[in-house]
């Protein structure tokens, strides 16, 4: 009797949750897991994580499709040109893996949604334009700082790199200072 009651309750709970996305994991637990991934990356490669380099590799590949000479001699593209094989980039393959990992996690958590993330006071079109502009600006910042949230903040921060800590403080200072101006986009 008691067992039947428990089973009924479990089934009821199961059906009610099945309709929506599952809750995210505890941030401290997930942070610890992410830290172990970062540690493993250090142990294997000696270099930690990164993401912006993958975009640099694709940019060099695009430039090379138009003119290999230009891609090989441009000061920035040259770093990613890799003797004509810019797509054989460690960071690009890292992001390919990240895409699959996020997809698996998203499917398991029932969080796949073909939507636009925005607050109720902007349109989809406005949000997509702002996302593009934000991506452009973030890329420029990451190029100047020689890294992003992954490559500088996480990777450098965990080995006490002073420049990485300066970067992290500057990122948060800037975003907090601008948050009020763009509140319509999110709240």
């Amino acid at each position: 009797m008691a067992q039947t009651l428990v089973n009924t309750r479990l089934r009821a709970a199961g059906t009610s949750v099945r309709t929506g996305p599952l809750a995210y994991w505890n941030p401290y637990l997930t942070g610890m897991l992410l830290g172990l991934v970062l540690l493993a990356t250090y142990l294997v490669t000696g270099r930690g994580l990164g993401a912006t380099g993958a975009f640099g590799a694709v940019a060099a590949w695009l430039a090379g499709a138009i003119s290999p000479e230009h891609a090989a001699t441009n000061l920035v593209h040259a770093k990613y040109w890799n003797d004509g094989a810019p797509l054989e980039s460690w960071t690009l393959f890292l992001l390919v893996g990240a895409f699959v990992g996020a997809l698996v996690s998203g499917v398991a958590g029932r969080r796949i949604a073909f939507t636009v993330e925005r607050g109720p006071r902007v349109t989809d079109g406005q949000r997509l334009a702002l996302a593009f502009v934000g991506g452009f600006v973030a890329a420029y910042g990451a190029k100047i700082a020689k890294g992003c949230t992954s490559g500088q903040a996480l990777t450098g921060g965990s080995i006490f790199n002073v420049g990485s800590l300066v970067f992290m403080l500057a990122v948060f200072a800037s975003a907090y200072a601008l948050a009020y101006l763009v509140r319509k986009e999110w709240l």
Partner: peptide, 17 residues
């Protein structure tokens, strides 16, 4: 770079990873 990146983060909503 951090100040510029932070502006891109709050406007764009994401970071490269």
């Amino acid at each position: 770079g951090g100040l510029v990146f932070g502006a891109g983060f709050i406007v764009g909503g994401y970071c490269p990873g």
